[in-house]
Structure formats: C-alpha cells, structure tokens
Design a protein around this nucleic acid. Structure first.
Length: 793
DNA sequence: TTTAGGTCAT
C-alpha cells in the first residue's frame, strides 16, 4: 500500500511533496518496525532523493533494522552526504549487532573525517568499549565527554557508570554517580546494578533507599536488580522488594516475573515462585528456564522434568540453558536413562553442538554412568571445549578413580590454550593426594603461585589439603601462612587429615591457631576435634569441647553429639555417653551405635544388648554397623546362640546383607565358644574369600582349645595370603607353647628371625620372645584383639 | 542516531 502511494506521487513528479511523505513514511516504518517499510528502498526513491540527507539517515536506520548491519553499511557508503546522525546511525548499527570492533573502527573513520561526535555517538561507543574491555579507549571517550561538557548528560553518565562497573571498578562508578546531578531512574538503576554485579548486595539495597528518599521513582528495571540482590540477602528482603514492586506499580512483565521466580526459588520457596509465574499468562523461554532451574535447585527433580515437558507442550522450545539444567537434574537424581533421553532430544533439536549442553552431557555421563567412556566421547565431540568442559571431564575421571589420566587431560587442556580456573585446580589437587605425587603437587603449587590462583580460598584450601594428604604437614602450614585469609574449611581439612594419620595431638593443636585467626568452629571442625580427643581418650579436652558445643549451640548437630558419645565411650565415661544420647532431640542410628560400642568395649555386654533393644523400641532401624557390634557383644559375653540369632536376623528381618566383617565377627563368636567346626564351616561356605584376620582368629581359638593340626593349617593358609606377616608365626608359637611343644615354639621363633620378619616391626627379637612368653602367661588376648578391636568410625 | 532488566554448568 505504501509503495503504491509513493509510486503515484512519483508519477506526478511532485518531488518536494515526495520528500516530505517519504520522510514521514520511513519514520513510521522505523517506529513501527514493520517489514513493509523495506519497499521504500526502491531504486526510484533512491534516484529521486539521492541527496536528501534526512531521508537517507532515516533509510539508513531502516536498513540496519530490516536488512542487517552490512546492508546499512553499504547504504552508508553510497550516501553522497553524511552528518553526525549518519555516522552515529552506522556506529550504533554495529553496536546493536554486537560488532563492537567494527563500531570502534567506524568511530575512528568518523573522527578522521573531521565529523564531531555528539552525545548519541559517544554513548554508543562507550557501550562497545565496555563490551570489549577497551580500557584506554573508554578513558579517551570519557575525556571527550568532559571536553564537550557532557558530563551532566544522564545518558552518558549512565553509560560511563555501566562501563566502569563492567570493568569491575565499582568505586569509580560510584564516584561518577556522585558527580551526577539530577540522576534519573536509569542512572540510579545502573548504579544499583553496578553494586549487584560487584556482589555488594547490601549496598545495592541501601542505594535503593537513597533513591526513594531522593524522590526518584523506581521501575521494573530497578526491581529486577533488587530481586537479584535479595536472592543473597534472604527471603525477608525478597518479600519486601516484591511488596515494593506492587506499591510502586511496576509492570509485572515477563522479565520481572522471572526475577521474582528466581528470588523465590533461591529462597527455597518454590510454591511462591509458581504462584508469581501464574499471575499473568505471559511465559517465555527464560521464565520457563527459571522455573525448571528453581525445581532443580530445590531438589524437586520430578517437577523439573514435568515443567520441561509442560514448556514444550506450551509451544516454547527449550534452549541450551534449559537443556543444561535438566541434564543437571539427571546428574543429581542420578538417572542415566533420563539423561540419555534428554541427550537424544538435544540431538533432534540440534543443540548437541552447544558447548553448555555438551558440558552438561559430560557431567551427566560422568555422574550417572559406571564408565568414563560415554562422558569422554561427548567431550571429544565438543568443538571448542571451554574451561568448564575440561573441568567436568577432569573431575569426572577423578571421581572414577582415573587420577593419572586426569593429569594427562590437565596437560592437554593447557596445550589447547585453555587456562584452568579455581575448580579445575581444586579437582586436580585432589588427584595429587590420591596419587601421592609430591612432584606433581610441587609443579601445581608453582603454577598456582605464578598465576596468583591461590587468592581464591578454594584453591588455597585444596593446596593445604593436598599437602596434608601426602603427609607434608609443614608444607600445609606454610601454605596456610601465605594465604590472605583462612576459613573453617582450611583448618577442618587439615585436622581431618591429621586424624587419619593418627596425629591426634597435632589435630587438637589447631584449635588455638583457629582461635588466634578469628575463625569460628562449625559442626564439621568440632566433630573432627572431638574425634581426635576420642582417639586420645582425652576426657579433659573432650569435656572442654563438650562445653563449647553447648555454648555455641553446635551440640544440635548430630555429628557433634555422636562424636561426644563415642568420646565418652572410649574414655569409659558411660554415664556421660548415655546422658549425651538422651540430650539429642532426634538420635540416629550412629548415636545408638556409639553408645552400644562404648558399652561393649568397656565390657558392659548386657547393657549393650539392652541398648540395642531400646534403640529398636524408639523406632531406629539398626544398620550393618549395629550388627557388627551386637555380634561382637555376644562374642565377648559368651552368648554364641544369641549372636547367631542376631547374625541370621540381618538378612531375614532387616534386609541387610552381611559383609566380610560380619563373617569375621561370626567366626570369632564361634571360635571363642569352642565351636571350631562351625567356625570352619562358616569360612568354607561364606560368599567371601577369607582374609588374614579370620585365620588369625581361628588360630587364636586353637590355642585356647589346644587344637594343633587346625592351628597349623590356619597358619599355613594365612601365610599363603601374606608370607611376611610375623603374627602367624607368633600365634603358632603360642599354640605350641600352650600344648607343651616348647621345642616347636622355639623353632617357630627361629623362623621369624631367619626370614627377617622382624624388620617389619620396631621390636627386637628379644622383645618378640618376651612377648610370646607373655602370651603364654595369659595376656594373650591382646595381640589378636589389637586388630580385632572394633572400630566403627 | 543514545542509556538500565530475567534463565546454565565444572
């Protein structure tokens, strides 16, 4: 219709009138942005109005919107005359299409041509500087802004604030904001956005309060940013901001709804999130993605899958974000079947090549499949793997126990020009501990110091833990001393490692270091310290830690109270152990196991079995550890039939499959009760290969029951398993001694010396001999008991 | 011809 009217006018050769009408039509097309507008570019118009600047500038704008920036550029090049609007038009065309390099190049041409920029040009150029991180260029533009006296222009002010914020210079941005008089909604919102980007949530909210006081009206843009801050400030702030959106009459568009959904889901209020999303019918791909993500964050995986399906049914195609999130849900469930289904859909919708989807697939296969091959195959299919792809791969192979391969991938990643980030380093440092590779650790440490990656506490903590995992405690402390700050994880991981190595006193010495460093204990660290005190049977330290747990309220953590029960049990303070259990609001199976263990190891067999009954009466189901304890209790209490009953009740009543340890206890139970034949039958029929301990137990029992042939057989079978274990000889020597065959006992001790088995111990041959005689004198329980002693932690 | 907003991952 437009082209017809224009043609009619051309035929009548009313050129002046045409100019005016064309100008208006183009303006209309520009503002309405409807496709019919493109007919205006017909050659007739171009010929007739070839040197009409205003018309051409409008046409340029239309070209960039309808035909893309390249055509706009071509049109610009053909223009006989250009003014600041023409130049700005083509610069902003490049900016809007994301061609920031070309935008800056065009701006350079403009300056060379002698054309002065205006505020419109400068704000466009600032956007490009911001996007490209062109610090010096941006600073030059700022000086132009100052030179032209445009600092008070709110548009330029906002663009400068935005640029400084994107570079991470929040303070400079705030200074600029302070210089601006008459800030408008946009400049205030930009500054709030700057604080949010810098993770200064509280300052963002404070600035909002100042904004209201200054009489500037917030709008939906402002609230979107405030809601992002509220996610981290907590639900009360989020609700307050939500209330303000209503008070200030902000338009509940799909963007504001998405921000509200995100806030409620991050505050674990999915019901409210859904309620908000249903307030209006408008849903787009980002809103749906936020909803799906919310369900995943709140571990509602079924609902997440349902929402994904609902989104598709509503006619909105899930994008790469939605696919990544739903694959993440598959990893968390974990469900390989669902993951495979989503994978095939991603292929159908051609999102397979998207790097985010690829990364999520690598992660999903690594977490859901028993084999690393699937994940590796997906990884190899990613065109340009980024640091997240590599980290998913490395963390995945480490999880599958391929620590050595992780190092190969780490090297390959760097060779491909991808630099590791904190999480990559965190993962690879874990592999160092597992591989016990000090040389790799030194290399990594060097790299970390060089790249200043240790500024991230995650990396610093991983380094501390890696050195401690290799037993290099001094190096751990050295790293700690070089860290800019330390947190509770720094000290807890070190304490845990020290406990694992048996350096319990060193673990306890961390407490004053933490105190001096103003690092507060949490439930995890306190549990570690309690466990160190328990291992040392240190009632004094234990009681101090108990006091601390009550004062700090950390006794609410079951792991803390359970540690205390264990501690009191090991110290023989069974009244305290029982009281601690009674003070727990909801004791769990570990709490009860702790009490039973304490009672058994202190010889209170009937009390231990009563505690087992009490536990079941309170509705707590016993676990496999409980049965190790009760069978052991029966063994020590000389109650073989009851022990057998408990043992068989595991499968019959409690659906717990006995493990090798349970069979060891069972053999011990029967051996102590002189039921050696039954014990041997257990060994022959159990679904596990006997271990050395089980032979030692029978061998010990043979001594008591003076069964030399069986004892010799057990020693022979045991030595087949481990010929270098001197205990078999020692136990055999005891058996011979006990049956009056001191000649054979002496010959057996001789064998120990001849075979050089003493080097495995710290003791001299004489001490060994004495020890053997000590056994004979009746203290013989200790030697096997040492290994046989129950440890449930 | 110019300025501010929402969904993902290791």
């Amino acid at each position: 219709m437009i082209s017809q009217s224009v043609s009619k006018i051309v035929n009548r050769s009313e050129i002046h009138r045409l100019e005016e009408i064309c100008f208006r039509v183009i303006k209309l097309c520009n503002s309405k942005f409807f496709k019919e507008g493109v007919c205006i570019h017909s050659p007739v118009i171009k010929l007739c109005l070839h040197d009409h600047l205003y018309v051409n500038n409008s046409l340029l704008s239309l070209y960039s919107k309808c035909y893309g920036v390249e055509n706009a550029r071509q049109f610009f090049d053909e223009m006989p005359h250009r003014d600041v609007v023409s130049w700005t038009g083509v610069v902003s065309a490049y900016v809007n299409s994301g061609n920031h390099e070309d935008a800056l190049e065009m701006f350079n041409f403009m300056m060379v041509s002698g054309q002065y920029p205006n505020e419109f040009t400068l704000s466009s150029v600032l956007r490009s500087c911001s996007a490209l991180g062109e610090f010096d260029y941006g600073a030059r533009i700022q000086s132009l802004v100052i030179k032209h006296g445009l600092m008070s222009n709110p548009v330029l002010g906002s663009a400068l604030i935005d640029m400084y914020s994107k570079w991470g210079f929040t303070e400079e941005a705030y200074k600029l904001f302070g210089y601006m008089e008459n800030g408008d909604t946009i400049s205030w919102t930009t500054m709030i956005s700057s604080f949010v980007q810098a993770r200064k949530w509280g300052q963002a909210l404070q600035l909002y309060i100042c904004m209201i006081k200054a009489g500037v009206h917030p709008n939906e843009f402002t609230f979107v940013k405030l809601l992002a801050a509220s996610c981290f400030l907590g639900l009360n702030y989020g609700k307050l901001v939500h209330g303000h959106t209503i008070v200030w009459g902000a338009k509940l568009n799909v963007v504001l709804k998405t921000a509200l959904v995100d806030m409620y889901s991050k505050c674990q209020r999915m019901e409210d999130a859904i309620k908000v999303s249903n307030l209006t019918r408008e849903h787009d791909v980002m809103l749906w993605t936020a909803i799906i993500s919310g369900f995943v964050q709140n571990s509602k995986f079924r609902e997440a899958v349902a929402a994904f399906h609902q989104m598709e049914v509503s006619g909105i195609a899930p994008n790469n974000f939605a696919y990544s999130i739903i694959l993440n849900a598959c990893s968390s469930i974990p469900s390989l079947d669902l993951g495979k289904q989503i994978h095939s859909r991603a292929i159908i919708v051609r999102l397979e090549d998207d790097v985010s989807v690829g990364n999520a697939l690598v992660d999903m296969y690594m977490k859901c499949s028993d084999m690393v091959e699937y994940g590796l195959r997906v990884f190899r299919g990613i065109h340009s793997p980024n640091v997240i792809s590599w980290t998913s791969l490395i963390a995945g192979v480490i999880e599958h126990g391929f620590d050595r391969e992780a190092f190969h991938f780490f090297t390959e990643m760097q060779a491909a020009g991808v630099q590791p980030n904190s999480l990559t380093l965190y993962s690879i440092l874990r592999a160092c501990s597992t591989l016990k590779s000090a040389s790799q650790l030194y290399k990594l440490h060097g790299y970390i110091v060089k790249t200043k990656a240790d500024k991230d506490i995650l990396v610093g903590n991983a380094l501390v833990d890696a050195y401690a995992g290799l037993g290099m405690i001094d190096n751990s402390w050295h790293v700690i001393s070089t860290m800019s700050h330390r947190d509770v994880i720094t000290y807890t991981s070190l304490a845990t490692r020290l406990n694992q190595m048996g350096y319990h006193e060193m673990a306890l010495n961390i407490i004053p270091r933490m105190y001096n460093d103003n690092v507060k204990m949490d439930g995890f660290s306190l549990s570690s310290f309690i466990s160190a005190s328990a291992a040392l049977a240190s009632t004094e330290t234990g009681k101090l830690l108990h006091c601390h747990s009550v004062k700090s309220g950390l006794c609410r953590w079951n792991s803390v109270s359970n540690g205390l029960i264990d501690l009191y049990g090991k110290c023989g303070c069974l009244t305290d152990a029982r009281r601690t259990l009674q003070e727990i609001t909801e004791p769990d199976v570990v709490s009860w196991n702790g009490l039973i263990s304490g009672l058994v190891s202190n010889g209170y067999i009937s009390s231990a079995l009563s505690a087992f009954d009490d536990m079941r009466l309170t509705g707590i189901k016993p676990d496999s550890v409980t049965f190790l304890l009760v069978v052991f209790a029966c063994s020590r209490g000389g109650l073989p039939d009851l022990g057998l009953e408990y043992f068989w009740s595991m499968t019959k009543l409690h659906d717990i499959e006995p493990q090798l340890d349970h069979y060891v206890r069972l053999v011990d139970l029967l051996g102590r009760a002189s039921r050696l034949e039954e014990a041997m039958e257990v060994i022959e029929t159990m679904p596990f290969k006997p271990n050395a301990l089980i032979y030692k137990i029978i061998l010990g029992a043979c001594k008591i029951h003076k069964n030399v042939p069986l004892g010799e057989d057990m020693a022979r079978r045991g030595l087949e398993l481990d010929p270098s274990d001197p205990q078999f000889y020692l136990l055999l020597a005891r058996l011979y001694d006990n049956t009056g065959r001191s000649d054979l006992a002496e010959r057996t001790c001789q064998a120990i010396r001849e075979r050089g088995l003493m080097k495995n111990t710290d003791k001299s041959p004489m001490e060994f001999k004495t020890k053997v005689h000590q056994f004979v004198a009746g203290h013989d329980e200790n030697e096997v008991e040492e290994e046989n002693r129950f440890s449930y932690n």
